[in-house]
Each structure stands twice: as C-alpha cells, then as structure tokens.
C-alpha cells in the first residue's frame, strides 16, 4: 500500500512504462537493459497486459464490420481475456521450465516482463486500427490488413528478441527454444485436461458412491 503514496514509485512506473516504447524500436538493447539494468517493472508489464486485453475487447466490438466477422450474439469478453492471459501464462511457465534446462539466464519474472513489453506494438497498432477501420472503405482494406499483419510480425519479432536477450542465447537457440516452448505449452494444456477429467471422474465416483449408500443403507 505504501507504493501508492510514494512519489518515487509513481515516477519509476512512468519511466518503466515509457521504456516500452524504447524497447519497440531498439529491441536488442532494450530487452538487455530491461532486465539487466532494471529499466522495466512488473507493474508496467501488468499495465501493458491489461491494456492489451482492453484493446482486444475494443477491437472485437468496435471495429467496422467490413473487417471483422464476429457474431455479437455469442461474444464473450471473458473468453477474450483468457485468450490473451492464458497464452502469456503458459508461455512464461513453459519457457521458464525449458530454459532452466537449456541454461537460460532469465527468471520467470523476466520472461513475463519481456512478453508483456513485446505486446506494446500490438496494442498501439490495434488501437490505431480501430479508429482507422471506421474511416476507410472496403476497397482500401489493404491498408488495414497490412497493418494487422505488421503488428503481429513486429510483436513476434520482439518476443524472439526478448527471449534471446534475457536468456543470453544465440538466434538459433532462441528459435529452437521457442519452438520447444510451443510444444511445452501443448503438453501443459494436455496434462491439465487429463487432470481435470480424472478429477471430475473421481468426484463423480464418490458422489455416486454416496448416493448408493443412501439408497442401500438408509
């Protein structure tokens, strides 16, 4: 609680948030300093992720229908939130688990921070695109699609650069570890699904056992 009254803390937050813009344009330097020079903060990372979620929801609801096919009848903001938060979480865990075995230098916190900072261009470009989509026509849609692809490419590139810097890897090792991370994410999801189905089976078993006892004994 002491943070919120501390002027220096706010100052630090502002600086670290501002630093995300620097990271976008100077990925290698930026990510190195982000963790090694303590130029980033978890609070700023949280804010970026939060804004990313908000922008994604706005994108799905406010983009002109010319460029997006979404049936509002079945729109669920919670799922949209999950679609952003879950992959970040999974990537962080899987990547950390993997890179500790592949002598990566990054901590879990660093990985999270790098991912969040890498989302910056996606957030900014998408925010611009929402406005843009409402003033351009279908024929001019090329601009929109180029921008959309550009945002994804830039973010992907930043994630790679971030992983490379915080783990102090070579490029090939980064790409390899990233691919393995994606496999790892799949494994985690699989284990969770199996675990939950087993648990629900077990619960169902005990419930039916309880019911059986009620019928027979009492």
């Amino acid at each position: 609680m002491i943070y919120f009254t501390d002027k220096a803390w706010w100052q630090h937050l502002r600086d670290t948030l501002k630093y995300s813009l620097y990271v976008c344009t100077h990925p290698l330097d930026g990510f190195w300093d982000l963790v090694h020079e303590k130029r980033g903060s978890i609070a700023a990372a949280n804010i970026i992720v939060f804004v990313a979620v908000v922008v994604e929801i706005l994108r799905l609801t406010l983009t002109n229908f010319l460029f997006i096919s979404i049936n509002m009848e079945f729109f669920n903001a919670i799922i949209v939130v999950m679609r952003i938060i879950l992959p970040i979480f999974l990537w962080t865990v899987a990547n950390w688990g993997l890179t500790t075995l592949m002598d990566g230098k990054g901590k879990m916190v660093d990985i999270y921070m790098a991912i969040a900072y890498a989302l910056t261009p996606y957030v900014i470009i998408n925010a611009v695109m929402i406005v843009l989509s409402r003033v351009i026509t279908f024929e001019e849609g090329a601009i929109y699609w180029v921008l959309a692809g550009f945002a994804v490419l830039w973010t992907g590139m930043l994630i790679l650069a971030g992983m490379m810097m915080i783990h102090d890897y070579s490029l090939t090792k980064t790409i390899l570890s990233s691919l393995l991370t994606i496999v790892g994410m799949g494994v985690i999801v699989f284990v969770f699904v199996v675990f939950f189905s087993l648990v629900s089976d077990a619960v169902a078993y005990f419930i039916s056992l309880y019911k059986e006892i009620l019928f027979r004994v009492i």
């Binding site: 229908f65 010319l66 096919s69 003033v135 026509t137 279908f138 024929e139 849609g141």
Partner: peptide, 18 residues
Amino acid sequence: YKLKHFRVGYGKAFQLYR
C-alpha cells in the same frame, strides 16, 4: 447493408457518404 453484412455494398455506400 450493415444489417445484413453486405460488405462490398457498404464499402461503396460509405465511400460516397464519406
């Protein structure tokens, strides 16, 4: 057009309206 997601037509109408 918007009611029925007719994109090409909407784009045309929007262009003229703009």
